[in-house]
Structures are given as structure tokens and as C-alpha cells.
Design a binder for these strands. Structure first.
Length: 276
DNA sequence: GCGATCCTGGCC
DNA sequence: GGCCAGGATCGC
């Protein structure tokens, strides 16, 4: 569900937690903990202060004063919500984080489908984390220029542009919504292969991705089905999407009719008339 | 590279 | 009941 703009929006909504002390963490028996144990997470984070919240690709890192982080991925259906402490536990809550008494809140990690993951990183860089170390640079990273994006893209000559944009090792942060939107803005067909694409066009794709993601952040993320920020608020980016979820309708700016086609098992929304 | 697979829930 | 869903991994 959540892509880079949704994670960044979540991060911003949770900034009031900075400086708070974690007093207790509990897990459900089905908590999607990966590459470490619940015990290790507790040992690392309980008693620690939340000193930083970091968005990296589609991951949110909750960092303590020692530079260690709880690394949270929301998968398709994950949410991280602040509740008053006495709030009843939600149906699919897999982790609860209680904060010091100066704050009346607890955090609940809720994930019905359990496609998300909870893991740990012991370094600021995150290079010891199995998930983070696979990621390419974030699309929003100012240091990611056309030259590097082209170089990284050319390693996958046989990928379609849609598959390229969804591949987190090339560059991180795009999911199905913003991949479709970026290809529309770049006027590129999702079915074109990387080796049929000019440098200049890949450069346009990078530019479009940066624009789309930044627009998504400005609008607080897209709440098409159930995305919510840390306070349970919806974003409004769904009202600004050109093609995603608009099969049979014109693009928002009415430049062409949107088609839906399943590509690598996922819906691709695009305008055949504009995207070549 | 691509399809199947992990899950639950909402909608037709 | 069947299809669909903001994701990513694991096999051929």
C-alpha cells in the first residue's frame, strides 16, 4: 500500500514522538518480525529514546540515541497509529509501543495481511539490515542525478519500464501508483524495454518520478483505499492522480483515455495515445 | 525476467 | 464465489 510519499507523510505525522522514551514493546504471536527476534527488538528499543524518524524508500526507521533503529515496512495493508493508552487493541495489531508517561499515547502497528516486516538495524547507515542494503538511492535523493539513474537502469536491459520503476534496487520509493503516474508524466509506455529507451528518456523518467513523489508528499499521500497517517488522517493525493485507478476515464487533465492492463501480475494504468 | 505465493478484507 | 488490493520474494 504505502509508497515513499505515504511513508514520508507518516514520518512527519509522528515527529511529536521525538524525545519520548519507549517503556514497553509487545508483539502478537503473528508479528512479522524478520532477521531478528522479538527479544532483540525489545532489548534494543525498550528504555531508549526516539531521537530520529527516517524515511528510506518505503521503510520507516525509528532510531534511538545509540543510532540503532527499528526498521518498519508496512507492506500492502500496514498502518502505524497513535492511540490514547487505554484504547482497545485493534484486530490485527502485531506490535504495541508504549511511551513514557509524559505522553498519553501508544503506537500500534496494524497489518491485516502481514506483508509488512519489522527488523532491526544497528548502524546509522543501515548497511547491516538485509532489506535496507538492497535498496538503490531514493528517487527523492537530490544526489540521484540522471547519470547515475541511467547507469543503474542499464544494468537491466530486458526489464520493461514499469518493472524498472518498481525495482527497488535500481532506485527506491516508487510503488504501483507513483510508477504509473511517473510513466504518464514522462510520456513513456510502461511496456517499453530499457534497452529500447534512450538516455534522454530515462532522464525524463527520473525527473517525472521526482515530481510525482514530491507532489504526493505535498498532498499528504494517496488514500485510495485505507492509507492513514499516524493520527488516522487521510491524504488527498488520490484527487490529483492522472491515471491510477481511472480505467476507462480520461486522464485527470483529459489528455487521453486510461487503459488498464495486467503487467507482471499488477494493474498498469496508462494512456496509449500519449505514452509511447 | 515472470508467475506463483504469502495473507485478509472489501466489493460486485 | 470470484476478483481485486499502495509489496516483495522465491522458484522455474
Amino acid at each position: 500500500m504505502p509508497e515513499l510519499p505515504e511513508i514520508e507523510t507518516l514520518r512527519r505525522s509522528l515527529l511529536p514522538l521525538l524525545g519520548k522514551k519507549i517503556t514497553q514493546i509487545s508483539f502478537s504471536s503473528l508479528a512479522p518480525i524478520e532477521t531478528c527476534t522479538s527479544k532483540q527488538i525489545k532489548k534494543t528499543m525498550v528504555g531508549a529514546f526516539i531521537t530520529k524518524l527516517i524515511q528510506r524508500g518505503k521503510y520507516l526507521l525509528m532510531q534511538n540515541e545509540r543510532g540503532q533503529s527499528l526498521v518498519i515496512h508496512l507492506g500492502m495493508s500496514g498502518k502505524l497509529l497513535c492511540f490514547p493508552k487505554k484504547n482497545p487493541v485493534q484486530k490485527h495489531t502485531h506490535m504495541k509501543i508504549k511511551l513514557d508517561h509524559s505522553s498519553d499515547l501508544e503506537l500500534q502497528y496494524i497489518d491485516a495481511r502481514r506483508f509488512g516486516t519489522l527488523s532491526l538495524s544497528n548502524t546509522i547507515e543501515g548497511k547491516d539490515n538485509a532489506f535496507l542494503k538492497k535498496l538503490g538511492p531514493d528517487y527523492t535523493d537530490e544526489k540521484l542525478k540522471a547519470k547515475e539513474f541511467i547507469l543503474r537502469s542499464r544494468r537491466h536491459p530486458k526489464l520493461s519500464l514499469k518493472a524498472l520503476t518498481l525495482n527497488q534496487s535500481v532506485a527506491a520509493g516508487l510503488g504501483n501508483i507513483y510508477a504509473c503516474e511517473s510513466l504518464y508524466h514522462a510520456k513513456l509506455s510502461p511496456f517499453r524495454l530499457v534497452n529500447e529507451t534512450k538516455d534522454q528518456e530515462l532522464s525524463e523518467l527520473l525527473k517525472a518520478a521526482k515530481r510525482c513523489l514530491s507532489l504526493g508528499i505535498q498532498h499528504g499521500g494517496a488514500s485510495i483505499r485505507d492509507y492513514l497517517n499516524g493520527h488516522g488522517h487521510r491524504g488527498v493525493m488520490q484527487d490529483f492522480l492522472q491515471v491510477y485507478d481511472r480505467e476507462g476515464l480520461p486522464s485527470l487533465e483529459r489528455k487521453g483515455i486510461v487503459k488498464r492492463q495486467v503487467q507482471n501480475g499488477r494493474s498498469t494504468f496508462y494512456c496509449p495515445d500519449i505514452q509511447k
